[in-house]
Amino acid sequence: MLGLNCKQVVARSSALIDGELPFWEALQLRLHMAVCKGCTAFVHQMRVTRSLTLAAGQGSPDDDAALAAVLARLASEGRDAG
């Protein structure tokens, strides 16, 4: 199917969504995707995966307790040193 098969598109899908493919290779992928619903859906899924990965990494409810523990330890070590 226009140069690349679906397996080859999948192997390059991360590089495509990260903008890391050379121009001609990216063009080959886009030509394939223009006629392949499966690869279009797959690349869309990879974009959603990238966005959800980013969203899942935002903060943590445990941060405040951990911050208090670090500050307490620093205060204690400061006293010991003094």
Binding site: M1, N5, C6, K7, Q8, V10, K37, G38, C39, A41, F42, H44, Q45, V48, L52, A55
Partner: peptide, 27 residues
Amino acid sequence: SLAAAFDGRGHWKDTPALWEEITPDRI
């Protein structure tokens, strides 16, 4: 991990579907 997803010519056996249920609101 996707070895079983393709036929001998490297084409999808079962075409992936769009994740229409995943919207920003739902997330």
